[in-house]
Design a protein around this nucleic acid. Structure first.
Lengths: 124, 124
DNA sequence: ATCCTACGATGGACGAAGTCCAAGTCAATA
DNA sequence: TATTGACTTGGACTTCGTCCATCGTAGGAT
């Protein structure tokens, strides 16, 4: 555990946190100015491998990193401003996929992205 | 309707077709060697705006383009080889998200990506 | 205390994916 | 024929991410 890794882990802490790697770098650099991009990517990759952080790709742009990895959840994304909230749908999305639609796959996971306008963007 | 646009539209035709922009370019260039990358991107963008094609971003890498836009469906992705199938889950994923989990958003869409191993990858 | 070693950090080069722009082409119209 | 406008082209550029050679440093060995 180096100072760099600790700072990256501390930046990624809280509810509804979905930072890009660049945002993580910027916030880490506030506390440790000489931290490098490569170290941020390396550390994020390790946190993902450890299951402490999950990657979220909601828009085909930069991946975002979500520290809320221990509680299963899905994401609600604003089509206007890109804001992301963690949400907990009722029911198991996996059970909605009948065997006849599984093509012999061993299906193990279902990622759901809900899209719509947030209250701010709906007003404008 | 130019020759370029026609070729791009023809390349994107069929079931379970999920090509990247580069793959579209390569196949279009087989028939029309001087077609340019910019034209492929322009045409794909127009097809998406027209609702004839949907963008699919299953892996945080290159976007894929799915011509099966008129029948609502979700995607099943192999965690091993990246193969993609169109699938039709029962029930409406939107109805699984209770109002208390909508944070005031006007939710209009739910994208579901099922993940698992395809029969080929499960064997290996 | 000094030296070694190995892991991690660094920064810069590189690559993939996609966008942007000025210039060129072409067909329809005046 | 000249003009116009839409479409295409190629290349420069941006963003996001990876790779790699080098450097620093902490801890163990001498």
């Amino acid at each position: 555990m180096t100072a760099q890794r600790r700072v990256v882990a501390e930046v990624l802490d809280g509810e509804h946190v979905h930072l890009t790697a660049d945002e993580v770098l910027a916030r880490a650099a506030d506390r440790l100015p000489e931290i490098s991009r490569a170290t941020v990517y390396n550390t994020l990759g390790e946190l993902v491998s450890l299951g402490e952080v999950v990657e979220v790709a909601t828009d085909g742009r930069a991946k975002r990193y979500d520290p809320n990895a221990h509680q299963p959840h899905q994401h609600l994304v604003c089509s206007g401003c890109g804001a992301i909230r963690d949400v907990h749908p009722g029911g198991d999305p996996l059970s909605d996929l009948p065997v006849s639609e599984r093509f012999g796959f061993a299906v193990s996971e279902a990622d759901v992205t809900y899209r719509g306008l947030c209250p701010e963007c709906a007003k404008a």
